[in-house]
């Protein structure tokens, strides 16, 4: 038996898909380590994005897939797992739960219970996808897991914290979307003018705490004028 089950798929002339079996433990560390090793191998001439149990390697270099697979596999089988340095974010949320959620969850869960369940979990950023800066957060309580809406909403506001299946996500910009909205967080999650446009990185931990409309509005204003720094919401995990 190999140390861990990884499969390689020739995705296109310039792309290679690397997948782990579902339920693989420590998947975020494994993906992050793989990303790090592959970037070293390609001397950064490579672009990688992650999914739940896979990552896609894209390069503009001429790729002999089989040679590349062999090189990557040797590295992944021999290198130790990196433990990424991660941050713990405590994020304010103004809860305003959509009917699609309250109607489906009643009578077992009322609004206060939904808030209590959602704000007591510690989430981990699994990966970023769907929209620029949209984080997929793992760790959603099974009682709040339900399929996405059959008809997506035409407009979901920026900062919306929403749930779908096993994930909690945050809409960085306003967009059409099919996730059930729980509330709004006033932090700017994606900003092209920052050195790192994404606020949250894979592996980061996230907790939510409820704020009032007044506190939400005040934070929005303070963040806009720079009176409150984003660092204030972050600590070492």
């Amino acid at each position: 038996m190999p140390k861990h089950q990884i499969t390689y798929h020739i995705y296109s002339e310039k792309a290679l898909l690397i997948s782990w079996e579902e339920q693989t433990l420590d998947i975020i560390s494994k993906r992050t380590t793989a990303e790090h090793q592959i970037k070293k191998l390609f001397k950064e001439e490579v672009y990688i994005n992650q999914g739940a149990y896979s990552l896609l390697v894209v390069t503009e270099l001429k790729m002999d897939h089989h040679v590349v697979i062999d090189l990557i596999d040797k590295r992944l089988q021999s290198k130790k797992l990196l433990e990424p340095t991660t941050s713990l974010w405590k994020l304010p949320i103004l809860y305003d739960i959509e009917k699609s959620l309250t109607e489906t969850l009643k009578p077992s869960c009322d609004v206060n219970e939904i808030i209590s369940i959602h704000s007591s979990s510690v989430y981990v950023v699994d990966f970023v996808g769907f929209l620029p800066g949209f984080p997929y957060l793992k760790g959603l309580d099974s009682r709040l897991q339900l399929p996405r809406k059959t008809t997506p909403a035409l407009k979901v506001a920026a900062g919306s914290v929403a749930v779908s299946n096993e994930y909690c996500g945050i809409y960085p910009t306003s967009s059409p979307g099919g996730w059930h909205v729980l509330g709004n967080c006033p932090l700017p999650f994606f900003d092209i003018h920052r050195v790192a446009p994404n606020l949250l990185q894979a592996g980061d931990q996230v907790q939510f705490y409820a704020v009032s409309q007044e506190e939400h509005d005040q934070l929005t204003a303070q963040l806009e004028t720079g009176k409150v720094a984003l660092e204030n919401f972050k600590s070492h995990a």
Partner: peptide
Amino acid sequence: RKKHRHLGVP
């Protein structure tokens, strides 16, 4: 913008 796929940018 091929280099920013990891940020979810198309």
